[in-house]
Computed example of a mutant assay.
Amino acid sequence: MQPLKQLENFPIKQFQRDLIQWFEREQRDLPWRKDKDPYKIWVSEVMLQQTRVDTVIPYFNRFIEKFPTIDALAEADEEEVLKAWEGLGYYSRVRNLQTAVREVKEKYGGVVPKTRKEISKLKGVGPYTAGAILSIAYDVPEHAVDGNVMRVLSRILTIWDDIAKASSRKVFEQAVTALISHENPSYFNQALMELGALICTPTSPSCLLCPVREHCLGFQEGVHEQLPVKTKKQKVKRVQLLVAVLRDEKGRLAIHKRPKEGLLANLWEFPTVETDPFQAPNDRLTFELKERYDLHVNLEAKPFTKIEHVFSHLIWNMDVYEGTVQGNVDEAKCDLKLVTEDELTEYAFPVSHQRIWKAYQDHRT
């Protein structure tokens, strides 16, 4: 790969100094910055994928309180870990984290590896997470390139490569490798991320407050608002679903565990089926509950709530019905679990079904 021409006369040392000094003054007080524990930094980086900092903070504090060390997370029951993650979404992240942590315990004696080659072999640890842990926890001058960093550097160095393309990442990794401070790689990488979060935002960047404005080629050329180049995502798919909140004759609630693989794997939910254009919703739900779970049910005529839940790649439109189960339920045969309202809190549910439960409680009061 050809070196970036923009770097030929770029004032790298001054850029490093201005960026790091700004970070020393302005960095946010975040719980994973209290020390350089690689485990805590790892947990925070996994949580911060696809999730806002303000949302992550209380989750991080509770998670670390419950699983304060690599050993604690490695030895924890998956159901307990999923419950602690409940509400953050993208649950494969925490499953991969626990798998990787167990490998660190078994293969590396509980010490997070200090080289990119070793740490990148751990499940769920991609190039960005590897670089973030190595640079922030161990002061290794490794690139940590995410969307924030690509946006910042596309403006500073006027890089016109499409950041939505996987091939473009190499260009930005090359840029960070050339720019990174070898004296303080931890602060350098964190400062780039912080700059993207606070100043060099996706829209309406606060250029007049930027500590490295005088080094920003995009600002000097007046093209900072046109960068980064990013093609639009594909259109999301809509799925129409029917959900049943069912009680048996003892007042217990029927819940179902999702498959071990795929979307929201191993989480619990209320029985859910897709709609059929050739069947009325109530008839469709009644039929599928009998076919799948051998349940005879009485459903209310109309849904008590309608919920839209948006994923990155699809949207669930959910019509939710209240109902009762007739006769005894054989849990072992029908792949359902019957739980009391108090017991329900012990199971990890996706956000969509947490919203269903809240709507059901409001409906009943």
Rank of each mutant, 00 (worst) to 15 (best):
G109W: 04
N189P: 00
D335V: 06
L241W: 13
L19Y: 07
L344Y: 10
P350T: 08
S204Y: 09
Q234W: 15
A74S: 08
K237E: 15
L295T: 10
V46T: 08
L153K: 01
Y138N: 01
K121Q: 11
P58S: 01
Q326L: 12
N266Y: 06
S352H: 05
D342V: 11
P205G: 08
V229Y: 00
Q98A: 07
K13N: 13
A175T: 07
E261D: 13
E80R: 14
H353I: 05
L73H: 02
H215S: 07
P211V: 08
E249Q: 11
R93W: 00
E214I: 10
R62W: 03
S120F: 06
T69P: 02
P202V: 08
L192R: 04
T203L: 11
C207W: 11
L208H: 14
F311A: 09
I180P: 01
N9D: 07
V320K: 10
V236N: 11
D139W: 08
V212R: 03
E300C: 09
Y39T: 00
Q50D: 05
C334A: 12
K230D: 03
C216T: 01
K165L: 12
P350I: 08
L344G: 04
Q234K: 15
E26R: 10
D71K: 14
V229S: 00
G126P: 02
S120C: 10
F23Q: 09
Q21N: 14
I136S: 01
R258A: 00
R151P: 03
V81R: 05
F304D: 02
K13V: 14
A144I: 07
W22S: 01
G124M: 00
K170V: 15
E106A: 14
L82G: 02
H363M: 09
P259I: 00
L253Q: 06
L4Y: 08
I41N: 01
L19A: 07
E261F: 06
D294M: 13
E106D: 15
G262A: 02
I180C: 03
V239P: 06
L179C: 03
F278L: 15
G89Q: 05
Y108K: 00
